[in-house]
Simulated assay, not measured.
Amino acid sequence: MHSERYLDKNFSLASPRLTLVPMTDSHWQEFKALKGDPALMANIGDVLDRQALIKEFKLRAGPWQADEGQWYSLMIYNKTQKNFVGSFGFRIASLENQRMELGYSFLKQSQGQGYATEAGITLIRFLFEQVKVRKLVAACTTSNTASWKIMEKLAFSREGLLQSDIFINNRWHDSYLYGLVNPLPHENEAG
C-alpha cells in the first residue's frame, strides 16, 4: 500500500456533488454534530461525554501517521450548497495484509440523498487505484439497515455475522461483517 499518498495536508477527493477533505482542528462543530447525536449514534456507539468526545476528536483531527488502527476522517461537503453532510473514515486494519476498514456517518438531514454511496464510490476508487489497498472491510450492527444497504450498494459482500459483538446503550448487538476485494492486480501477487 502507498500510505504516503494521503498524508499531504492538501489532500482532497471530489465527486460530482461532493468534496471530501481531511478532518482538521477546524471541524469540531461538524464532528460534534455527528458524534453527539443520540439518534444517529444509536446503532454506531455510545454518545461520549464532552471530555471523551474532545479526546476522540483530537485523535482524528491530528496528522495521520498511517499506523494500524488509527482512523483518518474525511469531512464531506455538498459542492453547491457548501454545507456539511457527513464523514467517511478509514484505517489500516492490517498493513501486512493490505486491508483497510471503512466507516461512515451522515447527518439525518443528509440521509436518503445518495451522498454516502457517492462518497463511498469516490473513496473506494481512490483506495483501490492510488493507495493499492488489497481489501476493504466494514461492519455494522444488524439493526443498522441503512448502513448495510449502503455497503451492498458499494458492492461489498456480507462475509459474516458476529453474535453479541458490540456493546451500545447498555446492550449487546450482533454485527454484520462486509468485505470488498480490489479487482485490480496487486504489487506483491504472482501473476
Rank of each mutant, 00 (worst) to 15 (best):
V133Q: 10
E189D: 15
S164R: 10
V133L: 06
K55N: 14
T24N: 02
L180Q: 06
N188T: 13
Y72S: 02
P63D: 14
N83I: 14
A190W: 05
L123M: 01
L53R: 11
Y72N: 01
L40P: 12
K132Q: 02
V133F: 10
K135D: 07
D25A: 00
Y178E: 05
R158C: 13
R91K: 12
F126G: 09
R125N: 05
V137I: 08
Q130F: 02
H2A: 05
A33Q: 01
I54A: 15
Y178H: 09
N83Y: 15
C140I: 09
Q51Y: 13
T141P: 03
Q51H: 15
F126D: 07
L40A: 11
P22M: 02
T142Y: 10
Q81W: 06
I121H: 03
S3E: 03
P16V: 01
T145I: 12
L40T: 14
H186E: 14
F156W: 13
K82N: 14
E68V: 00
G69Y: 09
T19W: 06
D174G: 11
K58G: 13
Y115H: 01
R17I: 03
Q109K: 10
G120R: 05
L18N: 03
T117D: 05
F90Q: 10
G36K: 04
G160M: 10
K32F: 00
S15C: 07
Q65N: 15
N182L: 13
L177N: 11
D8P: 14
K153Y: 12
R158H: 12
N97F: 06
E187S: 15
